[in-house]
Structures are given as structure tokens and as C-alpha cells.
Design a protein around this nucleic acid. Structure first.
Lengths: 278, 278
DNA sequence: CTTCTTTGTTCCGATATTTGGAACTCGATT
DNA sequence: AATCGAGTTCCAAATATCGGAACAAAGAAG
């Protein structure tokens, strides 16, 4: 197959060249379509998806039918498509069965009690940070807006912290593929400045987000390394600029690093050897 | 192709009997494997999955590779498989983008404040109820254990309530396929008793769970019908038997019915015509 | 140390599935 | 009536999947 694009006859079709093009065949296309629907804002009509996915009509139609039959999508009366319930069922298991989150949770709570601010746990996946848990002020948290969300690495505290753990070649590979969207005036805009900051982070053991992702929002983060696992993660304490000064964040950095270290060690033990307990 | 079973020579091995045999081709198999891993308790080794999924070795291996490549599964150092982060990403969008849940939420809160007990929102999918939201006492709820979980219809308040809205033929189709597992001494054990109770529920407009799913747990539920949609759902107020008597539940039934009606109407308006708002 | 298992990975011809352009249906619009 | 747009169905050609069997690698037993 070609890439993701519809494409026609494939002239040279060298393929491989870039990233790891090739592919997951049918599954890949199905997932692309699924994602197109899930990530969209409202219900998507056939034509909408036709445009976003770039699949030919016939193919797309069959893919959608299959997805509906599997319960991953639901077709409404007006023929538009929405995410189906099966996604929830699968996800809830994936989340509650996540032992890493489980190990980290008490530490997140501890940090929250110390600081009174929101605490996040994120895992590195390619050039993104996926938030896996969150402990925040009073309000019932629910499957918080954040959980499951993926943010770019270069503009988040956890992201930069996690990057600091990567071996240089891996780091460079990721940075090379980055697009540096300027979310705020403080967002990194080039590989150079980012790499420079990462050097600092390696030295200090913690990273800051100086309103780089969202204006008026700051955080301190520390990386988590789990020995014996390929997992790279991080935690952060986040707060509004008017309430948490950079000095305040610096004061908390020790606690954040300590919590990160504790999670890393505990996880190495509990995730390493055997299965899960009771 | 055969059915889902791998089997060897398959004597009769009709398996599924019929239902809607045929299938979703490759996607179906991939999802079956994915589900096998996600629903399992710990990380699953290749051989474990080989057993549960019944796919031939070669096929299974390719399926797993593709699932990993898509980020739906992750392969650990010891070669075992775990749910991947992409599931979370997809699910969180599916959940937070669910407008029905959004409409219902204030009403759930209202019921919670009135009763002080746990309130659930569930949607009917085939012969199961999938919990989509939950409001409970103080404790931080998080993506509660329940959310996304699917329970059989015949032993839950919401399930029976939802069934009561179905047209008779549809109802009978579902009941015909039920397995009636006896979770407690009070669980329905036959189609007759279930159908009889559903007749009552149609009359009363609400259903009870008299410790039928879990011992010492009771609830009152009311069905939600959204006109103009195929959605069938329900809400319930649940509590421990020592604290909530059947009389208490009966006293609350009016409020539950009212909330259900309100949700149904509001949803019909907000889900019906246009897209989502801001 | 050798032999036997057990577990995971790779191969490859046969074949069922997917592919995608084009024709078709149905309803709304002009 | 004729045109347009959205969704669905068809079918020969292309290709990804299928799955048995051979192959490696790591343990366990002898």
C-alpha cells in the first residue's frame, strides 16, 4: 500500500524512506477513520469523513459499516456517525487496569496535599505526553477533561522532563520531527532553544513550564524513569500564574523530584517481576 | 472464512448458532484480540492470547504486531502485551464529547442531592447496560470503576427499566438470547419471571433492583426515551440495603421518573437537530 | 553437556478480503 | 421534468490475510 494518502498508481512507491511508513494494512485504515470521527467535534456525516480520511467512497463505506458492526461507532438516524459505547468499555478497563497509574496515585495525592495545586501524571508516547491521571482541588474529578489527552512534548513541563531522560539519538530523532506550534509567546519555537533547555533539565532534574502551553499557567515537573521498563513518564504540579510564582514552583521542585523518584522505584518493583496482585 | 472460533477441524462447531454471523472481516479479529488483552487481568503473553483467541499462530502474531504498531497495545520488555495509551486518548474524547451525558449530568446531580446516594446513568446496548456516568458521595470519583462497565440487563434496575421501553418483538429477541447467570439468590433465573416483571415496570414507570446483581445492594431506576433517537437509557439511585429500605426507594421513585423524563425531553431537543454548540 | 520442551518469530503459496471506480437509488431543489 | 447531492451497491483486479510448518532461542530435564 501507499502511505495514508489516497494516491493512485504509486510511481516510485519507495515507501520506507521516511518514518516507518509501511503499515498496518486494513487495521490502520480503520483506525484512521475511527479517529477521524472520534476527534471531530460533532457527529460526522459520510461526506465529512470522506473528506477528512481521503479514502475512496466504496472503501470508506465498508470501513464504516464494519466499525459500526463492531460497536466502535454508532450510526444515528440521520446517518451521521458518532463514537460508540464499546470504546468506553475498552478504555475504562485499560485505565483502571493500569498498574503504573495505581502505583503513582498515592504520590500524586501527597503532592497535591503539600501544594494544594493540580498534580498530573503523564506518559511519553512518541513526541507527545498522554495524561494518565490527575489530582486536583475539591471538585469531583471524574474522567477529567485532561485524562487521555495528548499534548506536544515541547511545551509542557512533563514533556520536557520526559525528553530529558531519553538517550541523545532518540531525543534528536524526536526533535527532528517536531513542528513547534506557537501556543503562546513563550512557546519554544526552535530545536535549538528546546535542546538547550533540556540540557538544563538534565542538570537540575526538573523542568518548568513558563506559560508555554497556555497563558497564565505554570508548572514544575520531574521525569520518572522506571528501570527495567521502556516507560518514560513524568509528574507535575500546575497552577495559575497569579497564584504560583516561579519562586514558589522552585520551592516545590524538590518535593516533585522526590515523588517522581519514589514512583519510579516503586514501579520498577511492582511492574517488573510477576503479574498483578489481587 | 469460518466463524470466530479457530478450532481445528471443527466437527459441528457451529458456535454462535447464527445471530448475525458473517462479519467484520479483519477488523473483527483484531478487535477480538484487542479485547482479549484489555479484558484480561494482567499482561498477556503470546501463548495466553493464543489460547483465549483461538487464532492460528501466524495470524495472531501479525494481528498483535499491527495492534502494537497502531498504539492500541504495548509490548513490554518481557514480550507480554498490555493495553496501549491510544485507547485512553480515543476513549477520553468519546466520553467527554458525549452530549447525552452532558445533558443528563445536572439531573444526576440533582438526584444525588435529593437522595444522598449514588446515581448512575446507563445506556442500553444489545442485552447489556453500559454505565456512562455516575455521581456519588464525597469521594473523588475519577473515571469511576463503573464508568464504561457493561452489566447484563436482567439483573440491574436500569437494565430492566430500559427493556421496558423496547417494542415487544425486540424485547423477545433479546430475552431469547439471554443466559441468566445467578449473581445472587434474587437474580431472575428465567425469561418468564423477567417478562412478568417488565410488564409491571411498564405499568409503574420504574424498576427496582432487589439485590439481584450484588447482595446488599438495591436501587430504583427509570427508563429514558429520547424521541427522534434510537437511544434507550436509564438512570438509577443505588444504595446499600442497610441504609435504603424498599420503602425509601419507592418514595424516591417519583423523583427518579421525573429526572428521567426531563433528561429524555432535553436530550431530544439538544441531540436532535443541529450540531453541537460551543 | 546434551536432549527435550516451551515460547516466540518468520516464511510462503493459496485464497479470501479488500480495493476503488462507476453505476445506481432516493430525496431534495430548481 | 430535470438537476443535483448524498449515500449505497456492484464487481473484476489487486493485495493483504491466512495458517501450517519450519525456524530460532531460552529453559528444563536428563
Amino acid at each position: 500500500m501507499g502511505g495514508n494518502e489516497a494516491g493512485g498508481m504509486s510511481g516510485e512507491l519507495t515507501g520506507i524512506a521516511d518514518g516507518e511508513a509501511a503499515g498496518t494494512g486494513t487495521l490502520g485504515k480503520a483506525m484512521a477513520v475511527l479517529e477521524a470521527v472520534v476527534m471531530a467535534d460533532g457527529p460526522q456525516r459520510f461526506t465529512d469523513i470522506l473528506a477528512t480520511s481521503g479514502q475512496p467512497r466504496g472503501t470508506l463505506h465498508r470501513l464504516l459499516s464494519h466499525l459500526v458492526e463492531e460497536g466502535l461507532l454508532v450510526q444515528r438516524r440521520d446517518l451521521s456517525y458518532e463514537p460508540g459505547l464499546r470504546m468506553l468499555t475498552l478504555a475504562s478497563r485499560s485505565w483502571s487496569g493500569n498498574r503504573f497509574r495505581d502505583v503513582a496515585e498515592p504520590h500524586l495525592r501527597g503532592l497535591h496535599e503539600l501544594t494544594g495545586e493540580t498534580v498530573h501524571l503523564g506518559i511519553l508516547r512518541e513526541a507527545e505526553i498522554v495524561y494518565v491521571d490527575k489530582v486536583e482541588s475539591r471538585q469531583t474529578v471524574r474522567m477529567s477533561s485532561q485524562i487521555g489527552k495528548a499534548s506536544p512534548v515541547y511545551c509542557t513541563g512533563i514533556g520536557k522532563a520526559a525528553l530529558s531522560l531519553l538517550p541523545q539519538p532518540e531525543l534528536e530523532r524526536l526533535v527532528a520531527g517536531m513542528a513547534f506550534h506557537a501556543f503562546t509567546p513563550h512557546t519554544h519555537r526552535s530545536a535549538e532553544t528546546l535542546l538547550a533547555e533540556i540540557a538544563d533539565i538534565r542538570r537540575d532534574g526538573h523542568a518548568f513550564d513558563r506559560e508555554e502551553h497556555e497563558i497564565e499557567i505554570r508548572c514544575v515537573a520531574a521525569p520518572i524513569r522506571v528501570s527495567g521498563s521502556d516507560l518514560t513518564a513524568g509528574i507535575s504540579v500546575t497552577g495559575p500564574a497569579y497564584r504560583v510564582s516561579m519562586e514558589q514552583l522552585t520551592a516545590w521542585s524538590g518535593a516533585v523530584r522526590a515523588a517522581a523518584a519514589a514512583i519510579g522505584e516503586e514501579a520498577a518493583i511492582r511492574l517488573g517481576p510477576g503479574r498483578g496482585g489481587p
